[in-house]
Every structure is written in C-alpha cells, then in structure tokens.
C-alpha cells in the first residue's frame, strides 16, 4: 500500500489492542468487519442513515461507518461483542432477548450499543428532543417511553420491533437504576467525562 495513503495504526477494541495497517479510506466499520473479523457491527446503509453500525467510542455511541479507522487511533472502541460481561449478558442484551426486541437481528447490534449509551446519557442529565423543558432548572425528565423513542430514533428497524425495543430499554434502564440505588450513588460520570 502507498505509505502516504495508508497508515499503521493501533486500535483498542473491547479492551484489546490491535496493530494494523489500513488504507486511509477504511472506515472503522470496515476495519472491524474486514480486518478484525468483528462482524457484529453491521453495515446497513454505510451513510449514517440507519444506525446499524453504532459502536461506543470512548463510551459514547457513534456511527462507525462515518468514522475513519485512521482517525480512531488513541480512542477506546466498544462493539456489541464487548458489551457482555464474559458469559453474562449485559442487562440491555438480556432485555432484548426476553422482550423479543428484534426480529431479523441485523439492526440489533446497533440498537443494543445505542441503548447502552442512551441509558448513560440520560443518567448524565442530557436532555433530548422529547424533553419538554431543556433548561437546567427544570430538572431531569424521567426516561419514559417518549424519551426512549426519541433517543433511540437513530437506529432504524425495518422489521418493526420498536415497540419491544422500547420495552427492553425501559427494562434495562430500570435494572441499572436498581443497581445504582443498591450501590448508593449515580455513575453518570462516564458519558460526561
């Protein structure tokens, strides 16, 4: 490869460091799928219009199809393969399974990564377009169904599993909240750091 048009980079994915040389044109999505064999992250449109490629970049959700791999060096990437705690599913994954929050499964990885981030974003006090009053003095609005719908709208699902997805996200958020109150505090710092 032309050394001026390609780059030797080091990618940190799901806690593991990978050294690879990529064509500068290679997106993070293609680097994951074609170079690292992490095909859980899906390519639905390759244009940022469907959300199937959603991953977490430094803990924040992002469309990996619009993120160049070369520009990702130094950042922490979490894909759907890195969401579970070993064999133990993440509460979001478990809720998608239990509530049938998917059908064909192709948007599911993106939905799950997005949902994990949505719960953190809300816990950090981020408003959304569904928030009636965004002023800080209005206080945080609860993560109700309308908030979940709006916040999850960057992830299209053609099978029409939205109704179950909303239930699954609400369930996972409740699990997180219960864990937080058991631990006696909020852990909203992750997304605002």
């Amino acid at each position: 490869m032309d050394p001026t048009k390609s780059s030797a980079i080091s990618l940190r994915v799901n806690g593991e460091r990978h050294s690879l040389t990529v064509d500068n044109r290679t997106t993070l999505l293609d680097a994951l799928r074609e170079h690292l064999d992490l095909t859980g992250t899906k390519k639905g449109c390759d244009q940022g219009q469907c959300g199937a490629c959603t991953v977490l970049l430094d803990g924040r959700r992002a469309n990996s199809c619009l993120q160049l791999a070369v520009a990702t060096e130094g950042r922490e990437v979490t894909t759907v393969e890195g969401i579970a705690d070993g064999e133990r599913l993440h509460p979001v994954q478990q809720a998608f399974l239990d509530f049938d929050g998917y059908q064909c499964g192709y948007c599911t990885s993106g939905q799950i990564c997005s949902a994990v981030a949505v719960i953190e974003e809300h816990a950090a006090g981020w408003p959304s377009a569904a928030t009636a009053d965004v002023r800080p003095e209005a206080g945080p609005s609860p993560l109700d169904d309308d908030e979940i719908r709006e916040r999850m709208s960057g992830n299209l699902c053609r099978c029409g599993a939205y109704v179950s997805i909303v239930r699954a996200v609400a369930e996972a958020a409740a699990v997180r909240e219960a864990a937080d109150s058991a631990a006696g505090g909020s852990r909203g710092e992750r997304v605002t750091a």
């Binding site: 799928r33 064999d37 992490l38 095909t39 859980g40 992250t41 899906k42 390519k43 894909t79 759907v80 393969e81 969401i83 579970a84 599913l89 994954q93 478990q94 998608f96 399974l97 239990d98 049938d100 998917y102 499964g105 192709y106 599911t108 990885s109 799950i112």
Partner: peptide
Amino acid sequence: TRLEGRLKVTGAARYAGEVP
C-alpha cells in the same frame, strides 16, 4: 424466546456477507 437470540444480541450471528 428465539433460539438464535443469544447469537443475535451478542453480535455472533453471521449473515451472508460476514462469513470469512
């Protein structure tokens, strides 16, 4: 629940363009 559910929620289910 779906028998392939765990594969789908962990990203392990491989679709046609994903078999190496």
